[in-house]
């Protein structure tokens, strides 16, 4: 086991788990707000792709990874606009529009990649990190968790920030009401459509950020279809989290950790078919679904359009 317990190897595995988990965390947190407000946002995969493309294009053009994140957030929000118009305002089927958005963005970003990057495949340099004094010196944990790009710390800080928003503010209450009792919210004079619009745009922002992180930090490059189902995993995480931001964080890190474990098992030469090893992240999600699925409390009006006065 000596080789497996080498510090650089364990550090790389843990760092890989965090890097793989951050896009899922951001997508899951975004989806959570949307679902709280009653909108099942299946288009999140497309929003991530939009963010990944816009984020990478901006980062490679400007040389600034921060501008890349900003552009990624805007790109994701832009993809969320049709969801707002068609589902929140016009009341069309959220699943159909969400899938349509995802397929559309897969095609669009593939074409844009073909036109702009496919002859040169530009790649970003290694991102600079911001080591946190003392903590970054802890063996294995330090470099993996506390010697990261500042965006990683901000992503983690979003978790308590959103928890406070949901539990301690009026807006958090409105979100829940928009998902559970939209008519009751309407009666109090709060605009249900506006509340859901804010939630869906926020989902786009977060998914776009997740996509930008995936392209700019996770891969250092943009390639077509690169989200590889991360958005859909984000939807599952949001559903399992029962409205708690901290649970989304836990789910994202478990999934990222399982991905790293699959690599560790293979490199360690564990004598099990690779297919079985690679089932681990997905099997873990299924186990969590079975164990906690019954306790999942989804908003009553999830997926249903709101029409004032309609029963």
């Amino acid at each position: 086991m000596e080789g497996l317990l080498q510090v650089p190897f364990l550090t790389a595995l843990l760092a890989g788990a965090v890097t793989a988990g951050i896009p899922l965390l951001l997508a899951g947190l975004g989806e959570q707000m949307s679902e709280k407000a009653g909108v099942l946002n299946v288009g999140i995969e497309g929003m991530m792709l939009g963010g990944a493309y816009a984020g990478f294009l901006t980062a490679i053009s400007s040389g600034s990874i921060w501008l890349g994140f900003l552009a990624g957030a805007c790109g994701g929000a832009l993809v969320a606009v049709p969801m707002v118009i068609l589902c929140v305002q016009r009341g069309l089927n959220q699943i159909v529009i969400g899938i349509g958005l995802t397929l559309g963005l897969e095609g669009l970003t593939a074409i844009l990649h073909h036109v702009q990057f496919s002859r040169t495949y530009p790649r970003l340099a290694r991102v600079e990190t911001l080591p946190i004094p003392l903590l970054s010196d802890i063996p294995i944990l330090g470099p993996a968790l506390f010697d990261r790009h500042p965006f990683v710390y901000l992503a983690f800080l979003l978790v308590p920030a959103l928890a406070i928003l949901y539990r301690g503010t009026n807006f958090g209450l409105w979100l829940r009401a928009a998902g559970d009792r939209p008519a009751a919210l309407d009666v109090t004079g709060i605009d249900v459509i506006a509340t859901r619009t804010v939630a869906v745009i926020f989902t786009g922002l977060m998914a776009g950020l997740g996509g930008a992180f995936l392209a700019n930090v996770g891969a250092g490059i943009f390639v077509p279809f690169m989200t590889h189902g991360d958005g859909f995993i984000g939807v599952v995480l949001a559903m399992l989290a029962r409205g708690r931001a901290a649970s989304v964080l836990a789910g994202a890190m478990i999934f990222g950790g399982c991905l790293s474990l699959t690599t560790a098992f293979q490199i360690a030469g564990v004598n099990v078919p690779t297919d079985v090893i690679q089932m681990l992240p997905f099997a873990t999600v299924m186990v969590v679904l079975i164990v906690f699925g019954r306790q999942a409390s989804l908003p009553v009006a999830l997926g249903l359009p709101y029409v004032r006065g309609e029963r």
Binding site: F9, A12, L214, V223, L259, S260, T263
Partner: peptide
């Protein structure tokens, strides 16, 4: 050392980077 990124991960650039980094870290 041998590692598969994932089931049919042909377009998974981020997975490719993550797994390769682990293999490099292993020597």
């Amino acid at each position: 050392l041998y590692a598969v990124i994932g089931p049919a991960a042909y377009a998974d650039a981020a997975g490719g980077k993550r797994v390769t980094e682990a293999v490099i870290a292993a020597g």
